[in-house]
């Protein structure tokens, strides 16, 4: 019943590790997009331009309320109908980056709202420009409370990369599936994918917590 073959496992290991690299690249690139775009979405909701705020707010709600896999399909398969012909990688990065940007924008929003009103007033009293107010005073203080949420979504985006397999991005899940189909054996590749995800996710969560403490100390927020 349980017929695990070590030699087969070792044989496919290099291929899976190679695919792990792709998974990490996909997660890293998607997260980089999400971190930057999320900030743009969060700040766009704080402008005095009502129409812009409302549109961005609705877009964020829309993205958060629909499944990631649907968005990946949409960008990759529906995009060409609008003249947007993208490689699986590019389409995948756009979809997953946009999806997590919507979530991260909420994390940023919470962080920014946690900064006391007096800090804004102090910035006004010093005549700081809007840009300096955000870049030098508000965002550094919004960061520590946002870091826990940002870390969760870093692990989240990593765990969601298998969704990219549906459009043929050769990440871990896609590769494991291919190996299974070639050899008619799924036990080893799928199990190994699970172990690889676990071995990366667990330390990552710990590292995020360490980083959080380090940032707080760096900013002088804890003694």
């Amino acid at each position: 019943m349980f017929d695990w073959k070590w030699d087969f496992a070792f044989e496919i290991l290099p291929r899976l590790l190679w695919a792990t690299l792709n998974t990490l690249m996909a997660a890293g690139a998607g997260y980089a997009i999400a971190v930057v775009l999320g900030l743009v979405l969060a700040l766009a909701q704080r402008t005095p331009i009502r129409a812009l705020t409302a549109v961005v707010r609705e877009a964020v709600e829309f993205i958060r309320s629909t499944p990631l896999v649907l968005q990946i399909f949409f960008v990759f398969y529906v995009g060409p109908q609008f003249g947007l012909r993208l490689s699986p990688w590019t389409a995948g990065m756009i979809a997953i980056g946009l999806h997590y940007a919507a979530y991260l924008s909420e994390v940023y929003r919470g962080g920014i709202e946690s900064v006391p009103k007096g800090q804004w007033e102090a910035c006004t009293a010093l005549s700081l420009s809007t840009r300096d107010t955000y870049a030098r005073i508000i965002i550094p203080q919004a960061l520590p409370p946002a870091l826990a949420g940002m870390g969760n979504y870093l692990v989240g985006i990593f765990k969601d990369t298998p969704m990219l397999s549906v459009i043929g991005v050769a990440e871990l899940m896609h590769t494991a599936n291919a190996i299974g189909s070639e050899h008619y054996r799924f036990l080893e590749p799928i199990t190994m994918v699970g172990v690889i995800f676990l071995m990366i996710s667990l330390p990552a969560a710990g590292l995020v917590r360490l980083f959080e403490t380090w940032v707080r100390r760096k900013l002088g927020m804890i003694r």
């Binding site: 007096g118 800090q119 007033e121 102090a122 009293a125 010093l126 005549s127 700081l128 300096d132």
Partner: peptide, 23 residues
């Protein structure tokens, strides 16, 4: 202000230099 509103991520000196340098 009543509640000081110093920038918590800057030193006393940093707080006093922020306006002159940036503004």
């Amino acid at each position: 202000f009543q509640h000081f509103n110093l920038f918590p991520h800057m030193t006393a000196l940093g707080n006093c230099m922020e306006g002159p340098v940036q503004v």
